[in-house]
């Protein structure tokens, strides 16, 4: 067992978990935040993307113990009270989701993409979301959403 201490959506949390606990398991099962999804379990689909110290990572491909001391932000941590994050709002307004399973990862990847590149082109968005797979094939509206989200974020 390993004691893991980290900041989750701004709150200090600690738990003693088996050493082989993945960060996504820690988030979903230990901390009960099920907004972060497990899609493929083979590190390819990106449904599990969260921010660790401000950078997007696949939480199914990292041990919880490796996030010791880090600041982790999940999809639950980006809205401001009842106000959706601009990127969430943009997905909502542009029909950027169909079944919604991939959406938490898409939104978290898109936020980091826009933070690094406030005015991404369509090509840059498609390349930037290479690590996120949508099985409803909704990429067209996802790209539109990210473009709108970028504008709403101030780009």
């Amino acid at each position: 067992m390993t004691m893991v201490n980290l900041t989750l959506n701004g709150k200090q949390v600690s738990a003693d978990v088996p050493d082989n606990t993945l960060l996504v398991t820690f988030i979903r099962e230990t901390m009960g935040l099920t907004g972060t999804h497990v899609g493929c379990d083979t590190s390819q689909c990106g449904a599990c993307v969260v921010h660790v110290d401000g950078e997007s990572l696949k939480s199914c491909t990292m041990l919880a113990a490796g996030a010791e001391g880090a600041s982790v932000t999940t999809i639950e941590g980006i809205a401001d009270g009842d106000s959706l994050h601009p990127m969430q709002q943009a997905f909502h307004e542009n029909h950027g989701l169909q079944c919604g399973f991939c959406t938490p990862g898409m939104v978290m990847s898109a936020i980091e993409l826009v933070q690094d590149n406030p005015n991404p082109s369509e090509t840059e968005i498609r390349e930037g979301l290479e690590g996120n797979i949508c099985r409803c094939t909704g990429y067209h509206n996802i790209v539109k959403s990210v473009q709108a989200g970028a504008k709403m974020m101030g780009g």
């Binding site: 990106g46 993307v49 997007s56 990572l57 990847s109 980091e112 993409l113 290479e130 690590g131």
Partner: peptide, 9 residues
């Protein structure tokens, strides 16, 4: 290499 999340790690 890989995708953005892989390159971040």
């Amino acid at each position: 290499i890989g995708d953005r999340q892989v390159r971040n790690r």
